[in-house]
Each structure stands twice: as C-alpha cells, then as structure tokens.
Design a protein around this nucleic acid. Structure first.
Lengths: 260, 260
DNA sequence: TCAAAAGTGTTGGCCCTACACCCATGC
DNA sequence: GCATGGGTGTAGGGCCAACACTTTTGA
C-alpha cells in the first residue's frame, strides 16, 4: 500500500511539474484561450473507431487536441497536432463548431496556480478527421498515458465536454453523407461494394438496402470497377472497386446535387 | 482645400484617440485575439439585404462585429453585439466558420502602436443572422460613420476578408435551405406563397417553378392557410399564410428528411 | 450439392419537372 | 373583357424501397 501510495504521489508530482514547465512556453508561442480538439475517425474490423488519449494522473480519456501557434492558421494547427499524434499527413480535416461554454475547461486544473496556461478559460475549435487506420502510428506524448482507437459504440467516459464534441462531430459527419462522397480517407485503396456499404451503415447507425445502395453508389459516378474480385472469403467473391480520384475530388468540392 | 485637409486631419486624430482609449478597456474585458463577425440578412422589397457599417476614417465598409467577454459564451456575445446594433433580440443566429488566416486583420491598423488592441492578430468566428427587417433600428457606434442595409447584389467593397466571410455565409444559408425551414425570421407574420417563393429564389439566386414550389412547401407541413387574402394588388388576390410555429421549430431542430 | 453472399432485375410509389388549365382581380 | 398573376391538374421521368431471382463461391 505504501509503495502504491508513493507511486501515485510521485506521478502526481511529475505531472504537475510537466504542466508547470510547459506553461511558460505555451504562453509565449500559442494564442491564449484558444484550443483545438480533434475527433479522428478510423475504420477497421467493420467498426468505426475514434482516437482518444488518456491523461496522466486522472482516469479520464480525452480527444487529442492542442493549441494554435501565434503564427499559423487553424487548419495548419490541426494538421500539425494530428501529425504529431498519428504520423499521418494530408488527413481529411473539417472544422465543424466552436465550443465556448463557460467552465468547459478551466475547472479541470483546480489544484494549479491561476497563472498556469492550462487553467485558463479555453474556447475550443472542433475538427473532425478521417484517416486510413492502417497508416497511423499512435504517439503517446508527455502528458498522456495512452493513445488508443476506441469503437464509437463503447467510448469511455470523456473529460470536460469532449463527449458533446464527439456527438456533434458524428452528427456533422452523417449530414455530410447526404451531399459529399466519403470513404477515400477511411478505406484501403481497393475495396468491395459491401465494404463501402458497411462503412455507410456504421456511420449512419442503420442498415441500408443492398441493391439500392449498390445502384445509388454507381450513379454517383465516382467509382472505378477493377478486373479483380476479393477471393478467399466464403461465398461469392465480390468485385473490387477503387475511387476515381478526379471525380471524387470534384464531388467533394461541388457536392452531390440535391434539394432546390 | 485647406479646410478639407484640416477636417480630415481632425477626424483622423479623433478616430485614433477613440481607438487608443478603447484599447485599454478591451484588453481588460475581452478574450484576446478573438473576434466575432456577423452577416445579418434581412428581406425587403423583394431583395435580400445585408447589414454593413462604415468605419470612420477609411472608406471601407465592414460587417458588424465585436469581441467575446471573458465571462460569456460566443452565442451570448453574438446576441449582445447584434442587440447593440439593431435593438433586436431573439435573432436567429448560426455560427458557421472560424476565419484564421494570418494577416487577415492585423495589417489594418498599421499606423498604431503595436500594443493597441485592434492591431493584434484576430481569429474571427463567423455568424450569420436572419432578422425581420421591419423590427430593426440601426445604431451607429463611435467608430463607425454609418450603418446600412445593402442589397446582396450591390455590396460595396468590404474591408479585410469580410467579403469572403459574407460569401461563405450565403453558401451556408443556401445549403441550409435543403434541410431546414426558413422565413420565420425574415418575413412578416402573414405572407403569401409568392412572397415566400421570392425569398427562396433570391437566396438561391435562381427561378423556381411556381406550382412545384407551392406543393413542396405545403408538403413540408409547416404552414397554416389563413382565411384572408392579400387585397389591393392588381390581379388575383393570393392567399395569406403564417408559419405553424410549433411545427416550424420542430423542423428547425429535426431538419427535413433527406438522403440516407 | 448446398448455403450464403453478391450481383442484377422488377414493380409500385413518390416526388419533381414541365406545362396546361382555370379562376380571380383591377384596369 | 382582357391581361396578368395565382391556384390547381396532370403526364412523364427519375429515384427509391422492397423483394425476387440469378450467379458465384467455399465448405
């Protein structure tokens, strides 16, 4: 027991020291009172995953985040933050909402001095990201214990308002499915129609009709059918497709026609 | 000529003084490096208008804007800013994007001291607002000469990146027409179907089919047909409608069904 | 050979487009 | 009564849900 206590005590001291040391530097280089939080989606094992990190010291999980340098715009900041975490570049990133409630963050570092960077009020710009699961190498930084993919159905409790940031990101992503293509950043280069359908179903949280999905997808005219099929599984081998990157990019910009 | 020159010089001094005096207070009460800019839409004379203000001293027009108090969230801030400008409360407000380019604002106050509030780098949160034109009383504040409604087809040149903020607001508003009702905040209580159609056409910038608009609108099931019609114009008297506020609010929250 | 998954065909309904028609109104 | 604008009818097409049929595969 004594040893365990000592360990915790020790860790606390270490954590505090790290936070305090980082504080001075943060005040110098970052825009104050402003943070970025990222909801990073990945797709694996027919399940939608989100990247979360565990803060040292308390048992809360958090969305990966960071701050904006005084000399960079927020897209660059989000890219930098995610590159540090995942090693990945050219991630699909979308700004979706600013979270600004009072006390959304500042009560979280109660035991610290009022001048400490982390104890300030922060408004946070929410980004969501879509990344290829297989291309990511997670990095644990010096204020986190762990950095893991968690399935969206079994997210752990998140610190501060990170749960509502995640919720809003998912809602935004779902809405986006109505007028923009998706999948290029989440699927491997070659994929089958059932795999693509699975992705849609998991994002939307509901089953879709097979035949209709198939035809609607083809009508979007962003897929190229390959001369191969996925062998090895039981049953019929599904055809492989890839995205027509030019048409895909076009559709991302223009959006699929809809409405008025 | 001498008199004119003197006047300009005098105005410059006055403007500078105001900015400098306000600077100290601003540093105390506002969150630094963060501003709010509002694209306020109103509808009148079958034309969509936007609220713009003219900054004293230079001949640029600007979107109405302001800063976020250290003790308020951004929605409250936007509401406060617009109430000051228009006297209106309970305006429909929608946050749509953060503008964070380097040099989007700080180069605009070159002649001032570096410590001045206005010369800092600002990230700006863009809001758009929909208001009932007839209920607004415009207020000119102490750093602006004028505050006016301008038709969206003939907007004057705007300062900094305000033109792209406006563009993005209009694009967002158009997209919103696909899944949310509109009109409650822009039209008088009673209105005719052709008037509502006109609003849609002006926002979308294109003609719509009369009969189809009529039926689509009715299918949305947010209108109540009144037992009156708009007399006085030449030709057939169109029926008057009002919004079913309960169903309208519901549709605002849920959105019209679409897509997957 | 057989079960199951994947590809394809079919039918009915809804909404959208486009146009036509009729009705009400002020001149 | 006539021009004009506004309400309503309707035919054709596209998309979609739902379901059925066919093909392909591994066991």
């Amino acid at each position: 027991m004594a040893i365990l206590y000592f360990c915790i005590e020790n860790k606390t001291m270490e954590f505090k020291k790290i936070i305090e040391e980082k504080s001075d530097k943060a005040w110098k280089i970052y825009i104050p009172n402003l943070s970025i939080d990222c909801v990073v989606f990945g797709f694996q094992d027919a399940s939608l995953k989100v990247l979360v990190t565990k803060i040292k010291e308390n048992n809360f999980w958090a969305l990966p985040g960071g701050y904006v340098l005084k000399t960079e715009n927020i897209n660059d900041a989000a890219n930098r933050i995610l590159k540090q975490r995942t090693g990945a570049e050219n991630i699909y990133l979308q700004q979706f909402k600013v979270f600004s409630d009072l006390n959304r963050s500042e009560s979280f570092f109660e035991e610290f001095d009022n001048t400490i960077w982390n104890k300030q009020r922060f408004l946070s710009i929410g980004f969501y990201a879509l990344v290829d699961y297989s291309q990511v190498n997670l990095v644990v930084d010096d204020i986190s214990d762990a950095c893991e993919w968690k399935s969206i159905e079994e997210l752990p409790q998140l610190m501060m308002d990170h749960r509502s940031i995640f919720d809003k990101a998912l809602i935004t992503l779902r809405k986006q499915l109505n007028y923009k293509p998706i999948g290029y950043n989440l699927l491997p280069e070659k994929f089958t129609m059932p795999e693509l359908q699975k992705l849609y179903e998991i994002i939307l949280g509901k089953k879709l009709n097979r035949g209709n999905f198939f035809r609607k997808m083809l009508r979007y005219d962003i897929l190229i059918k390959l001369d191969e099929s996925r062998k090895g599984g039981a049953h019929k081998s599904p055809d492989l497709y890839k995205f027509d990157t030019e048409k895909y990019e076009m559709a991302l910009k223009e959006g699929f026609s809809e409405g008025w």
